[in-house]
């Protein structure tokens, strides 16, 4: 059986270094399997976060051979077999231990975005929304909060000083999600412009490249958000029109339903 060498960063806030672990390779394994086998063997104290092991919870983010990725969705057989596999913690966040970083920055930013505030219900007590009107929001709500987009974003990756006034791709996308929500009534434009640093994103699309959910963060999220905020600053009537002239009751659409599959 062939062997594989994992080169894993071990350390804490005071410093650390890569350590090599050589293990037998098994068919179909992902990087997280290797970490688990190292924990069950030579290094039971190797720190790493994980939960679902299925790409759904966004806990096991790390930098694998230099690329921000989920450990549970990175198959060993897609990495070069002739060299060690390097696993390092996300660089944008302070290290707690080994592969675990302090991601509390993200939870703090989340608190700064004014929450969802819906318009009243229809007379029959329901909210009516057409599927085509929720498609965009649903794309952003696929986000598993792995924070890989935050990790790769060069505005904060090597610029700790920018964190105080820049929300990062995950939360600019969250703002666009609310902005495009058919029921939401709140205005977050000034906040985005003045406090959440929307203008600091210069659309290099690194965030889109690393998103494990394949969300088009830049094209569908940040760029339209920039347009809306610029509109708001320079053409308030156009913004208002978009916000209030939404269809309150959607037309009947020719979409499939559960009861009529293809």
């Amino acid at each position: 059986m062939s062997e594989v060498t994992m080169r894993i960063w071990r350390g804490d806030p005071t410093g650390g270094d890569f350590e090599n672990y050589t293990l037998p390779a098994n068919e179909g394994e992902v990087v997280l399997d290797m970490v688990h086998r190292i924990q069950a063997g030579p290094a039971p104290d190797l720190a790493c976060r994980w939960n679902c092991k299925a790409g759904k919870c966004g806990s096991c983010s790390a930098e694998i051979n230099g690329m921000p990725r989920l450990m549970c969705m990175t198959r060993m057989d897609e990495l070069p077999a002739d060299q060690p596999v390097t696993v390092a913690p996300m660089r944008t966040f302070p290290v707690i231990r080994d592969l675990v970083t302090d991601v509390s920055f993200n939870f703090e930013v989340a608190k700064r975005i004014p929450s969802f505030a819906p318009r009243p219900r229809e007379a029959d007590g329901t909210y009516r929304m057409a599927q085509m009107d929720v498609d965009r929001g649903q794309e952003f709500r696929k986000c598993i909060e792995c924070f890989l987009c935050q990790d790769v974003c060069h505005v904060i990756r090597d610029h700790e000083e920018n964190k105080a006034h820049y929300a990062g791709p995950r939360f600019l996308m969250r703002a666009m999600e609310l902005e495009s929500h058919p029921l939401d009534t709140r205005d977050r434009r000034e906040l985005l412009r003045k406090e959440l640093g929307l203008a600091m994103c210069n659309i290099t699309k690194c965030c889109t490249e690393v998103c494990p959910e394949h969300i088009k963060i830049t094209d569908n999220g940040i760029i339209p958000l920039k347009e809306r905020v610029v509109d708001a600053a320079y053409d308030p009537i156009a913004w208002l029109g978009r916000k209030i002239l939404r269809r309150s009751r959607p037309p009947v659409l020719e979409t499939e339903t559960a009861a009529s599959p293809a």
């Binding site: 969802f116 929720v134 559960a258």
Partner: peptide
């Protein structure tokens, strides 16, 4: 379920715009 919608959840929709349900 309706309460979740009023808190921002975006469920899949029926053709007439209500919450879709699956078997």
């Amino acid at each position: 379920i309706n309460e979740l919608e009023s808190w921002g959840a975006l469920f899949d929709r029926t053709p007439d715009g209500r919450i879709l349900q699956r078997d």
